[in-house]
């Protein structure tokens, strides 16, 4: 089960399991972004390369106009995937203190 919610202030909240069977749901929302956006990972339990690809594609598109994604509230297991993929180099990730 995966859900993606857009809050009134534009923040994106991800929840559940973002696997290859769910990327179209995520892609539909990320495709509409055209400004710097905060993405809250607090309730996201799992992400695979399919989800990482959506984020990377969005970051590339936003970057062409000087905008970007801010990723925050990742749990440790999801954060490990970002670290191994070395996505620290291409995303702004705010770690929970």
């Amino acid at each position: 089960m995966f859900t993606i919610t857009v809050k009134d202030d534009g923040e994106i909240v991800l929840s559940g399991r973002l696997d290859a069977s769910q990327v179209e749901i995520a892609d539909a929302v990320f495709n509409r972004m055209n400004a710097t956006t905060r993405v809250n990972f607090q309730d996201l339990d799992y992400i695979s390369s399919a989800g990482l690809g959506i984020l990377l594609k969005t970051q590339k598109r936003l970057g062409s106009t000087g905008q970007f994604l801010v990723l925050f509230n990742m749990n440790k297991l999801v954060r490990d995937v970002f670290r191994i993929a070395r996505f620290d180099l291409v995303f702004r990730i705010e770690d929970t203190p």
């Binding site: 390369s49 399919a50 970057g63 993929a85």
Partner: peptide, 18 residues
Amino acid sequence: DTSMSLDERPVGGLGIYL
């Protein structure tokens, strides 16, 4: 090559690497 910049990194091909 995970050291590439944002512009250089391909969107696919990461799964087997992970």
